[in-house]
Design a protein around this nucleic acid. Structure first.
Length: 763
DNA sequence: GTTGGTATCTGTGGA
DNA sequence: AGATACCAAC
């Protein structure tokens, strides 16, 4: 397969074939980013680079999976050997091998967010702190961001600025919690999600036995996807690997500042800027992918104009040649219920009129909690759908309980697992005993497990503990595969019979879930048994396999389903028809982000991500009222709706008389939508920009715009055309606006531009 | 220690 | 509204 290069445009091809030295690819939505990444890897392999010398890091399992599949299509089986995966999974893989060098067992447990929160609340209790002031979510995010910025517990304690912030937030003891939490994780042989990064950094930084040099020699080519979503720590790790004296610096990062949506967990687009600076002395090449192959022009135009409202961005102009396409549809509903019904109605209509399949359609929302109403209507209309995100299978209580037993068999130090199941199902070991155990462990720096048989307790408790320990030990001695051990535990612990006792509907669902987990373990043991006789089918291997999974990986009986997911998880996906729902103030943008400009910009980027998922049809919906916190709330339409250019909007409004049918009136295309926009809360337009009175504004034909002219723009006011680039349909003007102090120069696509010529001729 | 009731908080996003 | 946290009674 060598004609793959012909499937690329010029810039893409350069990004693929510039294999050596540092490369930054700025990739707009739908610009073929994954294609560039996968072709680049394939190209490296064809050039003779060994697959295992290539490291490709992504953010989500989904992205990693897609990348691997696409590489396989080009180079075949060799693709297996490429180190492609999420930051967390690749780093976990390395850490398992090197664990002993940093004082961890190779079978270390990975704590998920729930485990972390549970450890934290135990610590808050032990330190006799007020749990209302010490909110575990807040503590967790403080600790997480400390780790992401390479601040150790000791440094934290010495950092006056951080300590002051904590005092002001009424949580002066965070530093102590951080220290205790770190110690407890280590004692439990456990790492949380941040530790998977942090400990790898520590490993490479301290470099015991020259371990870093080993990986530097191994990974000759490094690629990072979604670079705009990396945090300081992730970049520090990557830099350790490729940025050193004598390194060939074969690193390629791909990202889009406009799609950075994880600042809330420490991601920073500063990394892109730093990357440019760090590698400038080493001949960095920058490629911008600006052609969008996904969406029709009006969707691209809307996206371009929205993102202009953001303060900081890398200048680029995304364009499409897919034709104007359909206008963006706007649906206004009176209630959240009506919103659900009308989205379902529109889906039925689109399916009929355009012959769309369910799989062509997605409903995107800001918060997972919004999915319920859409589910109800889709079910009522008999439309097959699937909800992604939210409570995943592995987060359900009954699944976590069984998993906790299994974790304990693999790693008896795991305190969280022990706390979870020592008295579940009930066997008469209460909080008092648990507290005593914890205290003993803390005092002697041993694990709770080691103290189980020594602890002072009632006869009943002591007997129960004895049986419990015997059960776990016996499971360990079984030495069977994952499924044998799991079945033994599920029965022997009384967990299954306990679940069977509950005959309510919910109770039966729980039993089913526990059985589904056992089935899943069985499938794990049996898969590829013939082909890979050497594959590790132990319980430890199973747990490692699932620890970093998020989505429910069940085969769907009906593969043609409508996708329901959060705007965050939609990144990287595309659908013919996309519904972005709940376009309301305090919801999208989220109330959490509304009070600061950075937060608002991130919400806007999130909206940008959402609308650029659409290939042909984009529908935005909002509701006047919705239930939140069990109460009816009234919200204004989202400010983002106002930022969409009116001439790409088509609007539909409705009245739903009590018990009556929906009356739908379509506003004709092209009519100025003042009537609709009149419903919006009025807000100043562009940040600090002047607003031109639309009544007196008369746009000139775009062909007549030439360099040197003075022009008027509806949002940015008066400016001077510095130059005009590109030909025919895709002429792009660089214009300096005198009233925009921050970033006066804007690139504007003339085809869509609303510019009025004020004077000044082409020289 | 367990049970059952009431009070309280939560409800961005994800590996 | 729904889950969890907490408290008094057994």
């Amino acid at each position: 397969m060598s004609d793959y290069l012909s499937q690329l445009n010029d810039v893409q091809r350069q990004a693929v074939t510039t294999t050596d030295g540092p490369v930054l690819v700025v990739a707009g939505p739908g610009s073929g980013k994954t294609r560039v990444l996968t072709f680049r890897i394939a190209h490296l392999i064809e050039k003779g680079v060994a697959p295992w010398e290539i490291l490709a890091l992504t953010f989500t399992n989904k992205a990693a999976k897609e990348m691997k599949e696409r590489i396989e299509k080009i180079v075949g089986d060799k693709s297996d050997k490429v180190w492609a995966g999420t930051f967390h999974s690749i780093f976990a893989r390395i850490l398992r091998v090197e664990a002993d060098k940093i004082g961890y067992p190779p079978n270390f447990t990975i704590y998920d967010t729930d485990d972390t929160k549970s450890v934290l609340s135990a610590i808050v209790k032990e330190l006799h702190l007020d749990p209302t002031a010490y909110n575990v979510n807040n503590i967790r995010s403080r600790i997480s961001s400390a780790k992401s910025n390479l601040i150790t517990p000791r440094k934290y304690a010495e950092d006056e600025a951080l300590r002051l912030q904590d005092r002001q937030a009424n949580m002066p003891q965070i530093y102590a919690i951080y220290e205790k939490y770190t110690a407890r994780c280590k004692r439990s042989g456990a790492m949380d999600f941040d530790d998977l990064l942090y400990r790898l950094y520590e490993l490479w930084h301290t470099n015991p036995d020259g371990v870093l040099d080993k990986y530097r020699a191994k990974f000759k080519y490094v690629l990072v996807d979604e670079f705009q979503d990396t945090n300081h720590l992730q970049y520090a790790i990557v830099r350790k690997l490729v940025h050193y004296e004598g390194s060939p610096r074969n690193i390629c990062v791909v990202g889009d500042d406009a799609q950075s949506i994880y600042a809330f967990r420490g991601a920073t687009i500063q990394n892109i800027l730093d990357f440019e600076d760090d590698f400038k002395p080493f001949g960095i090449r920058v490629f911008k992918l600006e052609q969008n192959y996904r969406s029709t022009e009006q969707i691209v135009q809307a996206a371009n104009e929205i993102i202009i409202y953001n303060k900081r961005q890398i200048p680029k102009q995304i364009w499409s040649d897919k034709g104007l396409g359909q206008k963006i549809k706007l649906i206004k509903a009176m209630t959240d219920n009506e919103e659900g019904r009308r989205v379902a109605d529109t889906i039925v209509e689109q399916k009929n009129r355009y012959h769309l399949r369910n799989g062509d359609i997605a409903i995107l929302y800001r918060t997972n909690a919004q999915s319920r109403i859409f589910e109800e209507y889709l079910r009522r209309y008999n439309l097959s759908y699937r909800v992604f995100g939210g409570l995943s299978f592995y987060q359900r209580k009954e699944v976590k309980d069984l998993l906790a037993y299994l974790r304990l068999v693999v790693n008896p130090k795991d305190e969280e697992a022990l706390r979870r199941v020592l008295n579940y199902p009930r066997r008469g070991i209460g909080d008092a005993t648990l507290d005593k155990l914890s205290e003993m462990a803390g005092a002697t720096d041993t694990t709770m497990w080691e103290n189980l048989l020594k602890v002072e307790a009632s006869t009943r408790a002591k007997n129960a503990i004895g049986e419990f320990v015997a059960l776990i030990q016996k499971a360990t001695e079984l030495n069977g595969n994952a499924h044998e051990v799991a079945t033994y535990i599920a029965k022997g612990s009384g967990l299954l019979s306990h679940l069977k006792e509950d005959t309510t509907v919910d109770g039966m669902a729980r039993l089913e879930n526990a059985n589904a987990l056992l089935d899943g373990i069985k499938a794990f043991v049996e898969e590829d048994l013939e082909t890979e006789s050497t594959a590790d089918k132990s319980l430890a291997a199973y747990l490692q396999n699932i620890a970093l999974l998020t989505d429910l990986d069940q085969a769907d009986p009906d593969p043609d389903f409508i996708t329901l997911m959060s705007t965050h998880s939609a990144k990287g996906l595309e659908f013919k028809s996309v519904f972005v729902v709940g376009m309301e103030e305090k919801l999208f943008p989220s109330y959490m982000a509304m009070d600061n400009p950075e937060g608002l910009d991130e919400e806007r980027r999130l909206f940008y991500v959402a609308i650029t998922r659409a290939e042909q049809f984009l529908t935005l919906t909002y509701s006047n009222s919705r239930y939140r916190f069990g109460q009816m709330r009234f919200n204004e339409p989202s400010r983002f709706l106002e930022e969409i250019p009116r001439d790409v909007l088509e609007s539909t409004s409705s009245m739903s008389p009590r018990g009556g049918r929906t009356v739908t009136e379509e506003t004709s295309v092209g009519t100025p939508t003042a009537k609709v926009m009149g419903n919006f809360a009025r807000r100043p337009a562009a940040p600090s920009g002047p607003v031109v009175d639309p009544a007196t504004f008369k746009p000139s034909p775009s062909e007549s715009i030439q360099a040197g002219m003075r022009v008027l723009h509806l949002k940015f006011g008066e400016g001077k055309v510095l130059n005009v680039d590109g030909g025919k349909d895709n002429r792009i003007a660089t214009i300096e606006f005198k009233d925009l102090s921050d970033a006066p120069q804007k690139k504007i696509m003339l085809k869509f531009a609303k510019l009025q010529i004020l004077g000044g001729e082409a020289p």
